[in-house]
Design a protein around this nucleic acid. Sequence first.
DNA 1: AGTGTTTATGCAAGCGTTTGCAAATATTGG
DNA 2: CCAATATTTGCAAACGCTTGCATAAACACT
Lengths: 350, 350
Amino acid sequence: MNEIDNDSFQKSHKNVTIIDVARASGVSYSTVSRVLNGYEFVKEDTRQRVLEAAEKLGYVANLQARSLAGGHSNIIGVLVPGLDNSYIGEIIRGVDEELARANYDLMLYTTHRQRGHEQRYVNTIANGLTDGLLLVVPEVPTDYLKALSEKSFPHVLIDQSNVRDSSSMVDSTNWQGAYDATRYLIELGHRRIGFITGMMELSSAGERLDGYRAALTDHSIPFLPELVAPGDFWQRSGHKSGLQLLDLPAPPTAIFASNDLMAFGLMEAIRERNLSVPEDISIVGFDDIPQSSIVYPPLTTVRQPLDQMGRVAARLLLEQIENPDRPPRRVTLATQLIIRESCAALKERG
Amino acid sequence: MNEIDNDSFQKSHKNVTIIDVARASGVSYSTVSRVLNGYEFVKEDTRQRVLEAAEKLGYVANLQARSLAGGHSNIIGVLVPGLDNSYIGEIIRGVDEELARANYDLMLYTTHRQRGHEQRYVNTIANGLTDGLLLVVPEVPTDYLKALSEKSFPHVLIDQSNVRDSSSMVDSTNWQGAYDATRYLIELGHRRIGFITGMMELSSAGERLDGYRAALTDHSIPFLPELVAPGDFWQRSGHKSGLQLLDLPAPPTAIFASNDLMAFGLMEAIRERNLSVPEDISIVGFDDIPQSSIVYPPLTTVRQPLDQMGRVAARLLLEQIENPDRPPRRVTLATQLIIRESCAALKERG
DNA sequence: AGTGTTTATGCAAGCGTTTGCAAATATTGG
DNA sequence: CCAATATTTGCAAACGCTTGCATAAACACT
């Protein structure tokens, strides 16, 4: 007789839709939609009734439908190369925190498997249900950006400052960070300072090299090409280039690796040569990923506020979504030299 | 002056739809859909024409529409607590690899901000555009599972074996791994072996404790409650419990931490007490996350094949999606003791 | 040629929302 | 009390795609 308690009965398969809620609260589905979207002109009374019904029925919006119909999904996509570097994890954490605050969800895309299909991939994403996209890509994302700009899809670049595209972006003071680190080493008395580069296609790698070089110059220390070994931001390359540097006829007394991961590889290399840090050789890294304080000895490094970069990027993106006509912004956050135990003053040679 | 904005002109940059492709290739949109979905009965000739048109127009499927209409999105969701533990990263990597092979995309959800809203959260997900869900959740996911089972939504649990729910799941030999590690320590001559537990709400934590205990018993070593300190799988707790163990009147000569992260915390504690690993105390961890080989001394640990677990879970899920009536499966992968340098034979006390 | 099968293709009905437009109702000022 | 205005609500048309049903074309066979 009473139709109200067929809950358990009809709960089964079908999902609760806006229409069910409408029926249950005795209004049209449009009204329900308006209530759900916080539309202004709805009678308070109605609003309550709808909300209650929705709650009772366990209504959950169907995002696909919503975004198909032109609404926004409250999901933003994050495009990363992969999860195998905690550098990425840190950024994502920041992003996630900020998004959570704004009640957005996070959709994560990895690119490492898309080589050669970037364009198409990003199209799919932009075509999809995300309201915006954050890019932490491993190489200059020209292909991506073209597609994005073409549809003027909201997006923000993280840690890619050399892009001439007019996208919003956030990075950190790579040059200054490298300069500070190098100067620190110099102030400890080191003169032969090795350098392991990052993946030079990335702007950050170049900036760090420049910073290193500038510090040398400013202190009248000659820049010696043989003290610069190539790296690609991965641990393995740090190890390899470390060995190369250590095996030099006149090896450096300190080495600056363009990121922490490579500094770890370098540490391995140093141990393999039966040397120890920092007694025999000082090393400093870049990034300050979580492991850096765990390794032994704790690594002196240039802290890049990764999580904050993620946070800022997210905020920028959100603003851009809200106000599409806003001109792109560029934010550069300050790095900070974190002194731990991997550096020592140069011993006078006896 | 009144300038006419070119923008508004270009703005009509509509996305290419299935209909455009249909028009361009002179067939109906249904046919296009069939071609795109690999439907069997399409004339080869037609198929080619459609494919060409699609390519030429740069068509990209709209996933929302597709999945709204009942198709599948080729996206699977992964629900993780957060990205701040590389344990998670490893699993995701495996998942991602396997999904890439099957041409699926990965959508990542973090739960850490959803405390208390699990049910609703998972509903959103299952209601959304994912074809299936992988759960790597930090606590017993009762709430999640209820919702999932109710709609018989394809899902696989990772590393949660104590759930009585009939979901598919993959885990590893936690008990055996802990047993092996403990036995190894015993064989090195240790008798007072400390243990730092994991978050006991998790099945894996309990199994590891049991394995430790069993090994002790099998070697006629008494199980001493005071040698067991509580942990929660996070580094901080490893540090704290480590201190607790070290400060015992009769401290252990070896400590087994229920995961690597806690082992790192433990290492800190040991250094703080001016002891060294492995000379003064041997330690072993569990998981073998990437950092474990980097720390000094390299950590002896029980390797859990995290990436493979992810891969297997993904495969299980995909099979389940393809064949919904398949009974749930449970896969347990073998752990392996990785001997590095954090353990040493017990020195005879003089 | 006629009948029965296989293919191939098209039509139209959704899927669950949002939103412009219009109708209905309430509110206000005169 | 009426017209004018502001506030609420409903209807219907998308959004881009999948799919059941129907129709058409192609190919067997008698």
